[in-house]
Design a protein around this nucleic acid. Structure first.
Lengths: 337, 337
DNA sequence: ATGAAAGCGCTAACAT
DNA sequence: ATGTTAGCGCTTTCAT
């Protein structure tokens, strides 16, 4: 493979001149530029980013660390990141932690080895370990989707608390008084924030004693099992709030098995739906997080950070959720028995 | 950040010894190894892959080039790739071409610049340009999901032709005679192979004149629009074969609008479903491609190729599809009018 | 079992 | 507007 030296020889210039043409830096006469470009094409020269990065301390690589790229919510986010990154000359490395702290640690180490310029992190564990580690290694970080405790960071997320409150209010306004929330781990901010919003709405309606909170994982199994438990309890809920899309599927599967109709017997609301392209007929009343937008905003913020365009400490961007009312919610029935 | 030199100084050895400890190469006494490891921990040393790659000509990076990571089919494939890559010490760079040749070109160039060791390519255009380009730059390639014309390559795909034939036979056995197939572009092998399988089944049943083929894109819009056209035609089909998951959604949306019930009025079959985790109640009769497995197998083959463990030319791995009969198919009605 | 020297391909820093 | 020199951090090659 040809190098700058080969190009320089063919063009009759010094290697640094070739470098300047490639990177569009410094002053180059039109004539020289053309000679160099001709040589580049003639040789099929392609710059070597390893050498470039080693010398310049910039790899133009970002990483996106998420729980599971298999969840369409994160996939949309990833596209937002990639689109912005591409426009700015950055390549993205994706890492799936599967909500495991040890995988997150492993990836953090790999990313330092690879000298990425910045990391977009959806933190798996409920701690700031990875943020600190990346910081110590001088890698810029934007925390995405979830907050990290006890540490100030750049942050892009959506307003879970507010979305959850609105969703709960909607159910209360339909006459529901026994509303269960089924959510993810109790050390993940998106999970706990949604519980906080739910509680606010119950309290405002004078129903603080009615809360039924089920923690678990952000997966179908949790939705399924918690629904079965909730429906066996003496305080059988008339409405269920699923704190993410996978939980929502589990909830509905359980209700089907229990022969309970939605919304006639039980109203159901969720956080995050599935993309329109995957749905035959959107059915669920949900709070939508702008996942693509979050990815975009986070990548933009990270790139600014890398370029040193931010001086006033850490930035926080909190995007609003949107409530979409569909057919999975209805008025509470006169009497459940 | 500390370098091998710093570690060497602290451990009282030469830099090359540190290198040997890190990479587990050559002979190292237990005593020396411990001294070096202590120094590494003490300094928080992390090897720099850029420098390593520049010198050793191995980056331990792979790329996965797909149409759109937003499609769960490709997302599953991506997980298969990532899991195998991770186990073997490789990092994966994902690239979305959105079925555009120019984006594919752009990414191919970036991947050469980044000196990836190998590329898993789902080719966007109906040509071998990218394969040739990567080849010229000494980068190993495994073509994935679709074949490339006029060029021999390593290949991992599923048996589209056979799956399509079985799916069509299933419809014919239910009494359907007017079956439409709605598929992707006519220059993509998965699209044309499925048409070939469909034709084989029609021919075997003595119905070669009944074929109705609609080409388009592998997206919802194509499914929707082609269904509307098909249903307005004089030879209204009694069954529709959607050549991928997104087309399937479009087909069903159109049928809903036309007030046609599935399977009472029209039977519907598809290629690729959505993951179980996204479905409340699996409904469609489909041919399933083992996406995760394909990703895994392809990554394994690529890594073998990189390690020079393959000498007998190019390898082809064609995995079988699985037909799952569900409730979207039924016997043809006595008379449609 | 360990080390010395050299160089991978590029660009920062400093000329001119 | 262009060039010279040096060195980024590592591992290959060749000693010992």
């Amino acid at each position: 493979m040809p190098t700058v030296l080969d190009v320089a020889r063919v063009a009759g210039v010094a290697p640094i001149t070739v470098s300047r043409v490639i990177n569009n830096t410094g002053y180059i006469s039109q004539e020289t530029r053309e000679k160099v470009e001709t040589a580049i094409n003639e040789l099929g020269y392609v710059p070597n980013t390893l050498a470039r990065g080693l010398r310049s301390k910039r790899t133009h690589a970002l990483a996106l660390v998420v729980a599971d790229i298999t969840n369409p919510y994160f996939t949309s986010m990833a596209r937002g990141v990639e689109d912005v990154a591409g426009l700015n000359g950055y390549t993205v490395i994706y890492c799936n932690t599967d909500e495991s702290e040890s995988k997150e640690d492993k990836y953090a180490n790999i990313l330092v080895q690879r000298q990425v310029d910045g990391v977009l992190l959806v933190p798996a564990g409920g701690n700031a370990k990875t943020v600190r580690y990346l910081d110590n290694n001088k890698i810029d970080v934007v925390v995405l989707d979830r907050r990290v405790p006890e540490r100030d960071t750049n942050l892009v997320c959506s307003d879970s608390e507010n979305g959850a409150r609105e969703l709960t209010e909607l159910l209360i306004n339909l006459g529901h008084q026994r509303i269960a929330i089924i959510t993810g781990p109790d050390n993940v901010s998106t999970s706990t924030d949604r519980v906080v919003g739910y509680r606010q709405a119950l309290k405002a309606a004078g129903l603080p004693a009615n809360e039924q909170v089920y923690y678990g994982g952000f997966n179908q199994q949790t939705g399924y099992e918690s629904t079965k438990i909730a429906m066996r309890s003496s305080q059988k809920p008339t409405a269920i709030f699923a704190a993410n899309n996978f939980i929502l599927i589990g909830v509905v599967k359980a209700l089907r098995e229990l022969k309970m109709r939605v919304p006639e017997d039980v109203s159901v609301v969720g956080f995050d739906d599935f993309p329109e392209s995957m749905l035959i007929e959107p059915f669920f009343t949900v709070a939508i997080q702008p996942a693509y937008e979050m990815g975009k905003k986070a990548a933009e913020l990270l790139i600014k950070q890398i370029n040193g365009e931010i001086d006033e400490g850490y930035q926080k961007i909190i995007l609003p959720t949107e409530i979409i009312v569909r057919r999975s919610t209805g008025p509470v029935r006169a009497s459940p028995e």
